[in-house]
Design a protein around this nucleic acid. Structure first.
Length: 694
RNA sequence: GGGCCCGUAGCUCAGCGGUUAGAGCAGGGGACUCAUAAUCCCUUGGUCGUGUGUUCGAAUCACACCGGGCCUACCA
């Protein structure tokens, strides 16, 4: 069979935040798919990159008092470390802020220009005069013009459901500076994708790239009417690429982000002496033509199924073979939530648990559909322990030791057809992998493990071992069968559990390189000393994970957009913290006003290596007023994540000489019974350093 | 308001027109002791959300309704 050439991408993670377990659904899914294709002998490359541009990056960099490039290079390191921890094996990991991407953006832009698809138009937008930037809808809040509900987003009201322009808001406020935004007019460039309407209609419905449900959704929501022009530029200041033929204007982040797929390919090609044209140009005599598979989450469906193919079509580039869309992750049946302590970062997970456990659990849950998948922690532990530890790894654990001295039998014994049966199942398992129905693949694999365990039980090798020399040959045969069945299963699991596959190679037969190794048993080979291959998931580990998640500092980057709070949880709040620390004696208003509490911004934070509990913070009270404060929050807050945060400080506290320096104030934080940790207080957005608490 | 998805054993799900509806986990009983208290055998448990229809035959198809979710919205 002719090998396929398969280019695979995951959506580019935004450089504004760290990787969490929701992101990992996609990267693990994609990684399994790519590893499977490689194991099958196909030419597959897995490409990804950091998505680095846009307003959010610019604002965060400003808040943290550093350059955008500093911010995105730091985040890139963090992303790569998290991915490596989960054994996500990219062939290349680029950045949308790369020269290659700038060049490709220019080329595609020129193609759009040449086809007359770019038009210019003035847009009225709110401008923050203090921050000096145009404001995206979500950076403006104000009173709903319809129902007068306070503190609503710039584009819609969560109280009455009305939609409007941010300019219609009553008393609009910039969430960046607290200033009152003003309406300004600015020129924007648009792509008239309506010109490609009939192409998109055809492509979405009959290219085979999309699930019919998605095609139907697009037909209903977008393609049933003329497509609106797509706004692809932003006026300065903006962090991104300046448009060459439009100085002072930048490509909108969603223009250059998908082109990052091509840029990453380009960089990979340079490193491997390949031609970019062989992957992204149409026809060109490439044999076989490259397949392009994009894995994305359902939230970015329309960028990848309308704008992106439209851009590729206009530029004459290859179109996606498949856009594979997955759902979101819930934890214990609910959205990941900071307040419930279920907002699980990749790093936090890695601190407590084996990445293989999550890879397997996700594989067992993913069936290729767009439904959300749930990480139920109890089920997670039960499934990993029962399937991987109890069934699969246990096969080796219970038989390998009998072969340490003798090695595998020189001819494969009669096993009642077990190996042949599982070998035959390989076709169905492969088909399931190919369709991204990993859940079906895992079920089929576990059936093979069940049959193997039943075989061991029936043959009772432990009795043969006691029978001594008389039964030695039979014992070797039984153990050889069991170990072969085990290795066969690990071949099937190799795309999901690459680490296990490696370790099994050390035990017996060398590295697993090909799916075909599931078709032939091994004979006559030495067997290495058995070492534990995978540990059980313990309840205490899960508890530690949740405790760590609960005390994570809420990094602004990872916070979901702040909706109107619906405080429904107070009814169930425990009385424990109050009981543990009863109220202090009554005080007067004069007593209170002696304490001068101020909003301050953390502008520097560093470890104090010799201190057990202290971090050294520099806080700004606005203007030139800064203070050095030692805060007892070490271990609960990462210094880097604190920078830029607003906190509350006791500003008139008498300075105190500490072992490590002079502390000129105190950062206010909550702690007590009920939950370990120290919780910093943050003012509502809009508060400014120097404001007093009254 | 519209669109889509889901509703099958306590839990997670498979089955998607054809014999008495299945698996894993959980529960109950037994076996075994090689193994990370793992494994194996037996077993309890379901009016397949409700109703009407199509059919020789429906969990499986159609329609309506109920319940849950997602998306989107004064126009699909």
């Amino acid at each position: 069979m002719p090998d396929r050439r398969i280019l695979v991408t995951s959506a580019l993670p935004y450089a504004n935040g760290h990787i969490h377990l929701g992101h990992l659904v996609e990267y693990i899914q994609t990684d399994i798919f790519v590893r499977f294709q490689k194991l099958r002998g196909h030419r597959a490359i897995y490409l990804c990159a950091d998505d680095t541009h846009g307003t959010a990056i610019m604002i965060r960099a400003k808040a943290e008092g550093r350059s955008e490039h500093d911010l995105i290079s730091g985040m890139r390191e963090a992303h790569l470390a998290d991915f490596a921890g989960f054994q996500i094996a990219f062939d290349h990991y680029g950045s949308t802020d790369s020269p290659a991407n700038r060049t490709l953006c220019g080329e595609i832009w020129q193609a759009l220009r040449d086809r007359g698809l770019v038009v210019s138009r003035d847009v009225q937008q709110l401008f923050d005069p203090q921050a000096g930037v145009f404001l995206a809808d979500r950076f403006v809040r104000g009173t709903c013009p319809k129902c007068s509900a306070a503190d609503q987003y710039g584009d819609s009201c969560e109280q009455c459901g009305a939609t409007y322009s941010p300019a219609d808001l009553v008393n609009p406020v910039s969430t960046l500076s607290g200033a009152t935004p003003e309406v300004r007019s600015a020129e924007h460039l648009f792509v008239t994708i309506e010109t490609l309407h009939s192409f998109l209609e055809t492509w979405t419905t009959s290219s085979g790239a999309l699930d019919p449900r998605i095609a139907n959704y697009l037909a209903g929501h977008f393609l049933g009417e003329p497509l609106r022009d797509w706004d692809v530029s932003r006026p300065a200041p903006y962090f991104g690429f300046e448009i060459p033929d439009k100085p002072g204007h930048y490509w909108y982040v969603w223009f250059d982000a998908p082109i990052g797929y091509i840029a990453a390919t380009s960089e990979w090609c340079v490193a491997h002496g390949e031609s970019l044209a062989a992957w992204w140009h149409r026809g060109g005599g490439n044999d076989p033509p490259a397949e392009i598979h994009h894995f994305i989450g359902k939230d970015i469906t329309y960028f990848h199924t309308l704008f992106w193919p439209a851009m590729l079509e206009a530029a004459g580039l290859a179109l996606p073979t498949k856009v594979r869309i997955h759902g979101f992750l819930t934890v214990n049946g609910q959205k990941m939530s900071k307040s419930r302590g279920t907002f699980l970062m990749a790093r936090t997970y890695l601190d407590h648990l084996d990445p293989a456990a999550l890879r397997y659990y996700y594989a067992a849950k993913l069936s290729g559909g767009i439904d959300d998948i749930d990480l139920n922690l109890e089920e997670f532990a039960a499934k990993v322990n029962a399937d991987l530890v109890g069934k699969v790894v246990n096969l080796a654990s219970r038989t390998a030791r009998w072969l340490e001295t003798t090695g595998l039998a020189t001819t494969y014994p009669d096993d009642g057809g077990l190996f042949a049966r599982a070998a035959a199942d390989g076709a169905e398992i492969a088909a399931a992998y190919e369709q991204c129905d990993f859940a079906r693949a895992m079920r089929a694999i576990m059936l093979a493990a069940d049959r193997a365990n039943a075989y061991v039980d029936a043959e009772q090798p432990w009795k043969l071992a006691k029978a001594g020399a008389a039964a030695a040959e039979k014992l070797q045969q039984v153990a050889s069968v069991a170990l072969n069945l085990f290795r066969q299963i690990t071949v099937y699991l190799a795309p999901v559990l690459p680490r296990l596959a490696e370790q099994v190679g050390d035990l017996i037969g060398g590295p697993i390189r090909s799916w075909d190794e599931s078709q032939q048993p091994l004979v006559g080979l030495p067997v290495g000393p058995f070492q534990p291959l995978m540990r059980r998931v313990e309840a205490t580990q899960l508890e530690a994970l949740l405790a760590a998640a609960a005390t994570q500092p809420p990094s602004p980057a990872t916070l979901p957009p702040q909706g109107t709070a619906t405080m429904t949880e107070s009814a169930t709040d425990s009385g424990e913290p109050l009981a543990a620390e009863p109220l202090a004696p009554e005080c007067t208003i004069d007593d209170f006003t002696k304490v001068d509490l101020r909003v301050a911004r953390i502008i520097a934070a560093e470890e104090v290596p010799e201190a057990r509990k202290l971090l050294k913070l520099t806080v700004s009270l606005g203007g030139d007023a800064t203070r050095t404060v030692f805060a007892g929050i070490k271990g609960f807050h990462e210094p880097a994540a604190l920078i830029g945060r607003l906190v509350v400080v006791v500003a008139n506290l008498a300075p105190r000489q500490m072992k490590f320096g002079l502390s000129e104030g105190m950062v206010v934080a909550a702690s007590g019974a009920g939950s370990p940790g120290v919780f910093l207080l943050s003012p509502d957005s809009g508060a400014l350093p120097g404001m007093r608490l009254h």
